[in-house]
Simulated assay, not measured.
Amino acid sequence: MSKKGVLLVNLGSPDSTDPKDVKKYLDEFLMDPRVIDVPRWARILLVRGIILNTRPKQSAKAYAKIWWDEGSPLIVLSERLKEKVQQKVQVPVALAMRYGSMTLKKGLQELVDQGVTEVKTIPLYPQFAMATTETIDVKVDELVTEFFPQLTITRTPAFYHKPEYIEVLSKSIGEKLKGLDYEHILFSYHGVPERHIRKSDITNGNCKMNGKCCFKMGSPQHEFCYRHQCEITTVNVAKNLGLKNGTYSTTFQSRLGFDPWLQPYTDRTIERMGKAGIKKMVIVTPAFVSDCLETLEEIAMEGEEIFHEVGGKEFTVIPCLNDRDDFAKIIAGWIDSWRIVTTEPALA
């Protein structure tokens, strides 16, 4: 009988704020063909010829602003979440990162060393994207083929629309909004190039990139459409919280390069709303379950600076789900539902 185990997977982080560690991390991250999806020669020219000669020092300074005594916030928060999930389930749980020293190979090996033969991977991304969920799936498949042929892998689909996730996300936001005076809530998601959406379109051209098809329910491409999944996350949370139309909107952050990325852009929207007279803004980042560089520095620091520069007064950033007990509980529930499909005995 197979023994089951779970691998939680998040993005990753440099080992330290030293520019050398940041450069090593960025090289692995940006050289991933599902992150920068251009021919390898062009990716080498762009990443190693241009980006890595300037960006590591800048990124190192940004990481230094948000680094905790225990280390990278994303790593620390992911480890806390993993421990809480492990306490609630009866199968081994390991944690790995797609990039950095906490490799997927180490995570799989940790489970194999405990006798696991069937692994459920849970990417800690609510929405599917080429540069997140897909690259994890592909890398896991490569590692299983090369190093772990005895393993059977079960994947976890995007959970952006699961009622229990929406309930927990809404609750986490609602707790912070209680008693808070605000004018607009911005749901800011990590951006991706528009071509990623087209490449993930399993209908080969049904996606019109006009924002309208995102809201037509039942379209088959929505299973892999990042934009749709972000838009629907916002819609479901807004409905749960009873937000009025016009008091919230969806934007996309962290664009890189000159190709068209998903719009509207978060930084430009913050600037535009501030100039239009919005004085009290709330920001939510539902593409992330763990606070990280993109939430703690790009949004909470840079975003706030932009808002104040154009006349904004109050800028409130709501934390990610991080290691909330209720979030750990729903992950444990997904694991238990998967585990009890068989008659596998519980751990002693």
Results as ranks from 00 to 15, higher is better:
S2F: 06
K3P: 08
K4P: 06
G5F: 09
L7C: 12
L8C: 04
V9F: 01
L11N: 03
G12L: 01
P14K: 09
S16T: 07
T17E: 12
D18R: 06
D21H: 04
D21A: 08
Y25M: 08
Y25N: 05
L26W: 03
L26I: 04
E28V: 09
R34A: 06
R34Q: 04
P39T: 09
W41Y: 14
R43E: 01
L45M: 14
L45W: 10
L46W: 00
V47E: 01
V47W: 03
G49D: 00
P56H: 09
E70F: 01
V76L: 07
L77E: 02
S78D: 12
E79S: 12
R80N: 15
K82A: 14
E83G: 02
Q86M: 04
Q87G: 14
K88P: 05
V93N: 11
A94D: 07
S101E: 02
G107E: 14
L108M: 14
Q109D: 14
E110F: 05
Q114I: 12
E118V: 13
V119D: 05
K120F: 07
T121R: 00
T132V: 13
I136Y: 06
I136H: 07
K139P: 05
T156Q: 15
F159A: 12
F159Q: 10
Y160S: 06
E164G: 09
I166A: 03
E167S: 15
V168G: 02
K171Q: 15
S172K: 13
S172P: 10
I173N: 11
S188M: 03
Y189Q: 08
G191I: 11
G191K: 11
E194M: 01
R195L: 05
I197Q: 04
R198S: 15
I202G: 12
T203P: 06
N206C: 11
C207D: 01
K212V: 15
C214L: 09
C214M: 03
M217Y: 08
H222S: 13
E223S: 13
F224I: 08
C225S: 02
Y226H: 13
C230E: 03
E231K: 11
T233R: 03
T234L: 11
T234G: 01
N236R: 15
N236I: 06
A238T: 01
K239P: 02
G242V: 07
N245D: 14
N245R: 09
T247N: 01
T250Y: 02
Q253S: 12
R255T: 06
L256E: 05
T266P: 00
T266L: 05
D267M: 14
R268K: 14
T269G: 05
R272C: 00
G274L: 02
A276R: 12
A276T: 10
G277T: 10
I278N: 01
F288R: 04
F288E: 01
V289K: 07
D291R: 10
C292R: 01
L293R: 01
T295G: 08
T295Y: 06
E298I: 11
A300H: 04
E309S: 09
E309K: 10
K313N: 08
E314P: 05
P319C: 06
W334R: 14
T343P: 00
A346R: 13
